[in-house]
Design a protein around this nucleic acid. Structure first.
Lengths: 329, 329
DNA sequence: TTGAAAGCGCTACCAA
DNA sequence: TTGGTAGCGCTTTCAA
């Protein structure tokens, strides 16, 4: 292993000078700098980040906390965060909390112990107190917050949008899939849809799903058709749920979108691979990830003092689980 | 921030003693140990992993290199690794190489610089030389290797199995989706299928997909039906590809499985949500992840000296993109 | 059974 | 413009 001392010795200078050259701060004579650069190349020296981190109490590591890596929405988010961070020379420790507060807390501990420079959290289970008194900034992603900077999509508008498109396309007996009650984002879109449905005096039923996992989605889908067989439109809480509904409908010989319209939420990559391809409310997951990363970096650079919340717009992606309408207004 | 010195001072002992108590090595009087434990609790002291890592040149961090976090197969793998590692008190740095050798190398660098204890790599793009001369053990996952320990599923058998089931169910004009040529695992299953097809003297065509991404899968699907419209059976290189084929077939009004049978590969969670649910060759992704983690831990504990390769079995999951057969033999 | 002290590789202060 | 050195928090000799 090559250390800064090896470089110093070989270049015939002190470690202090090498360090200055390395970090581009403090005076270093042009010639000395060149010599040092050359030596570093020859030795293919790479500074030890652990030693740096010990001294500075900051690493080039960012913690990313995800609620469930198996839900395709989150890898998308992660990619956005990763790409932006990469450009700023930060690396990610991804913690998969698995919707389990214990795991989540243990990851926060890991982040602390490894001197991460900042954390982005997309989890929702944990009490806020675990995020207090941290020595690094935290940005919440896919989650609103009054006390912390956050990046999220406009759930209320998304819910309204889904309801409106459903109504415009003629569904009368609508069923709403309600996501986990503890999930603020899920409840926002749910409320948005209800608002709109009420405005239009449309009847609706509600099915609550316990979680956003594949298994719960399937269960809810089967139940829905038992409980509310007259349903002619489903507004799902996410695309996984919508996929399960679509699956169940086709299995029961219900034609989509003729007899039953379905609108999903998220627009995960698989949605267009379904058949018929899923109409859905698109959340810009990748962009949300990138924005969260940008926000964190601004925080680190001290460019922002207050708690900034960034709300990104959602939009309706018309595919084929909804019927066509002539007029676009 | 509480340090070991704070604990020592408060307990009225030296840092050396606290350290010994902490690590359970060397002599510490029972009473002293109790006192120290109590003090640690009172101060809720947590050792600084960075300082430890600097001295020992080893952290509690494991690097996990993934080729594409958006392909649902890999999060599944990751979960297996994560769960096993968690139980042994290791944490994961997940690097998403994005099928890009540059990124991959940069992550390997990050792993080195952060003193990871070991690395599990599920990537395939990079020349082996980047994995040589590393100061920590590397286990390959979803990839065979002669020179490194590895965990993978039996691709040859999987390919054969897919072909056999296809033949038994009466498809005569089969088209094989061939995954990326540089991917050994993809080629194994491909070869397995061809072997079997040849044994049975069945004709087949081949479509090569450039990558395992959603976009390439869609492109290949569209092309397949243009080039080989007479196809009555598709053996896909993975479930994403199979989903794209299924989608395209239904779009063209081809009935599945009556006119066209499809067999996927992987058994990712979404496969059963498709309609009709996808028949596929299941790779035990989660278990593969766990096995790789176990293998790495054994390596770290010095329990294994040689290069051990673990091959896991695959199996046919009969769902509804294949026709029923009476006899099971 | 305990403690003093060296040192892991680096940065930053201060003096030269 | 450069170098000596203290110190980041920890572990591990070695001596007491």
């Amino acid at each position: 292993m090559t250390t800064i001392r090896d470089v110093a010795k070989r270049a015939g200078v002190s470690v202090a000078t090498v360090s200055r050259a390395l970090n581009g701060k403090g005076y270093v004579h042009e010639d000395t700098r060149k010599l040092i650069d050359k030596t570093i190349k020859e030795l293919s020296y790479k500074p030890n980040e652990v030693a740096r981190s010990l001294y500075k109490k900051k690493s080039r590591l960012i913690g990313l906390l995800l609620p469930d890596i198996r839900n395709p929405f989150f890898p998308e988010l992660a990619r956005g965060v990763e790409d932006e961070m990469q450009e700023h020379d930060f690396r990610l420790i991804i913690g998969n909390a698995d919707e389990n507060p214990k795991k989540e807390i243990s990851y926060i501990e890991t982040f602390k112990q490894n001197n991460v420079t900042g954390v982005i959290s997309a989890t929702n289970q944990t009490e806020m107190k675990h995020f207090e008194d941290l020595s690094f900034p935290v940005v919440f992603l896919d989650r609103t917050s009054n006390h912390y900077p956050s990046v999220y999509a406009d759930g209320l508008a998304g819910g309204k949008m889904a309801a409106r498109e459903m109504i415009r396309r003629g569904s009368k007996r609508i069923c709403l899939l309600r996501g986990p009650v503890e999930l603020k984002t899920a409840q926002d879109r749910f409320k948005g849809a209800i608002d709109e449905l009420c405005n239009f005096n449309i009847n609706f039923n509600v099915m609550t799903t316990a979680s956003f996992t594949f298994a719960d989605a399937e269960k809810a889908a089967a139940e829905l058709f038992e409980k509310f067989p007259e349903t002619d439109g489903v507004i799902a809480s996410n695309d996984l749920g919508a996929a399960a509904i679509l699956h169940e409908a086709l299995k029961r010989g219900i034609s989509v979108p003729e007899e039953l319209q379905i609108i999903g939420y998220d627009d995960i990559p698989l949605s267009r691979l379904l058949f018929p391809p899923l109409s859905t409310i698109r959340q810009p997951a990748y962009d949300m990830g990138r924005e969260a990363a940008k926000l964190l970096i601004q925080l680190l650079d001290g460019e922002i003092s207050e708690h900034k919340n960034i709300q990104l717009p959602v939009r309706f992606i018309e595919r084929q689980t909804t019927r066509k309408v002539e007029n676009n207004g």
